[in-house]
Design a protein around this nucleic acid. Sequence first.
DNA 1: AAGTCGGGGTT
DNA 2: AACCCAGACTT
Length: 418
Amino acid sequence: MQESIDSKKYFSGELLEWYERSKRDLPWRRQRDPYYIWVSEIMLQQTRVDTVIPYFQRFIERFPTIKDLAEAPEEDVLKCWEGLGYYSRARNLQAAARQVMERHGGVVPDNKAEVASLKGIGPYTTGAILSIAFNRPEPAVDGNVMRVLSRYFLIEEDIAKTGTRTLIEELAAGLIPRGRAADFNQALMELGALVCTPKSPQCLVCPVMAHCAARLEGVEEALPVKSKAKPPRPEYRLVALVEGDGEHAGRVLVRRRPAAGLLARMWELPHIPAAANAGEGAGLPDGPAMDRLAAALSEAGVAARPLEAFMDAEHTFSHIHWNLRVFRFREAAGELAAPGGIAAGPSGSLPGPGFGPGPGTDAAAKAVAEASAAYESGASANEAEEYRWIAPEDMEGLAFPNVFLRILKQYSPLWSLS
DNA sequence: AAGTCGGGGTT
DNA sequence: AACCCAGACTT
C-alpha cells in the first residue's frame, strides 16, 4: 500500500510541476470565472482548442454574462455557433443559462447535483466545472484523460465501454492531490493534448515516462483500446441553388430545417433525396434529377427553371455521409412550375456514380422514400419549412452548416461573409 | 448498449 | 483517400 501512495505522489507531483511550466495561455484561463469555464468546456466537447479560441472570444463578447445569454434570441446564439457543429450544444447551453437564472439567480451553482442537472452538462462537464471553477476534488474524465491513464496504468479495457469510463473516473478521483483539483485535472488533459497524443506520443519529454506502464512494456501506441465506430451510411441528395428574378434579383432561395433532428433549426439550400443506388447510376444524365428538383420546388410554391449542374459537395457527419449534387436554377416569376414539364437543361455535365434520376427500381424508390421519411421525422408532424429569399447581407443573421457555406462561397465570393 | 448529433485533423 | 478524434442525450 505504501508503494501505491508513493506512486500516486510521484505521478501527481511530476504532472503538476510539468503543468506549471507548460500550460498554455488560453482565454478562459486568464481569470477563474465559472461562466467562462462552462462555455469553454461545452465548446471544447469534440472540438480542438485552436478551433474553439476565436469562437469563445466572439461568444463572450456577444454574451458577456449568463443573463445576456439567457435573454438573447436563440437565432443569435446559433449564429455565434455557426461552423462549430453539434448545434444542440448551443441550444442546451442557452437553456441551461435560463435554468441558472431561474434556479440560482444567474450564479453558477457549486454543488454537484445542481450542476449535473443543467441541460447539456454530463459527467465530464460536471467534473470540469466543479474542479476548474471551484477547485472541488471531482474527476473530469475526457478522452485525453482516458488515454493518459490507460497508458500509465496499462488499462486494456475498451474505453468505448461505459464501465471503463467509470473505472477510470474512480482512478482519477484517487489521484487528485489535496487542494489541487483545478490544476491537476487541467494538467492531466493538457498532457493528453500536448504530449500523450493518440499517435506518436512524445514520451521522451513526458514528465511521468519513467513509471509509465505502457511505455515500459513498449505498448504505448497500442493504447487505449477502443472498439471502432460504425462507418457512416452514404446518402445522396439533390440541392437547388435558385437565383431570384425580378423583385428577388440578387437573392437566393433558402429554407430553415425542422426544430428537431439533424442540424435542427439551421438554414440551408433546399434539397431532396436522390436514389441511393451508388454505382448503378453512373453516367446517367442530370436532366431527370433537375426535373424532380423543379417539381419539389414547385410544391414549395417556387417556380424555377433548371440551368445546369453546378458542383458536387460532400459532407461527413458522425453517422451519415452526404453526397450532394448542386443544380443552379433561375426563378421563373409568374410561371407555373409544371412538374416534369420543364425542358431539361444541359445533361450529364457532372459524371459520377450515385446520382440516379430517381426511383428507377423498387429498391431505389424504397431508399428515396425512407430518406424522405427520415428527413420529415425531424419535424413534429408536417411542420411547414420556412422558405426565404435572402441577399448576401442577410447571412449575418442566419446560421448555416459549413457544407452550405462552402457551396455559397463557391457560387460567389459575395456569399462568403459571415 | 447502441444510435444520434458536426467538423476538422493526421497520415 | 482513408482513417482518427470525441461528450451528451435519446432510445
